[in-house]
Amino acid sequence: MHIRSPRDFWSGLIFIAIAAGFMIGARRYGLGDMHQMGPGLFPTLVGALLVVLGAVVALRAFVIEGPPVPRFYLRPILISVVAIALFGVTLQHLGLIAAIAVVVLIGVLASRESRPLEVVGLVVLLTVFSVAVFVWMLGLPIPLWPDA
């Protein structure tokens, strides 16, 4: 057997894995019966449907021709995810101003075109704008500085 449509094949497997996870989890919540559906029943039904669909998609990949999985460029995605997560960490402990600096300074690494001087300007601009608009103008309750 030869996988002809790798994108479909892997999507199918992912679908099955997600469905299996939810169905196994559902067993702890009680299925009930059709008259009084327990909290586990609906996820089990949807999960079962997803398993079937995932299997069809994965098996179809042996028959239908499809394009290869495109290259994963690790740099942009990893840096973006890390930058956002660190925004959260920083916001919690050091407040918004530090968090904006962190997400911008790390985030710009996702692109090779970023220039140092511009980045500094960008941090200042985005900080001033966000604080002025979100905190002062809109009055959203975002901590600006670290809690003393």
Binding site: V89, L96, V104, G107, S111, S130, L140
Partner: peptide
């Protein structure tokens, strides 16, 4: 775009946080 995308990050993060004021959402 190199100036635009960090701004998108910032606004997305702030936007997500302010829905419920939960860092967890980020």
């Amino acid at each position: 775009y190199r100036l635009l995308f960090p701004a998108i990050f910032v606004f997305c993060c702030i936007g997500v946080y302010t829905v419920d004021n939960k860092v967890f959402d980020i």
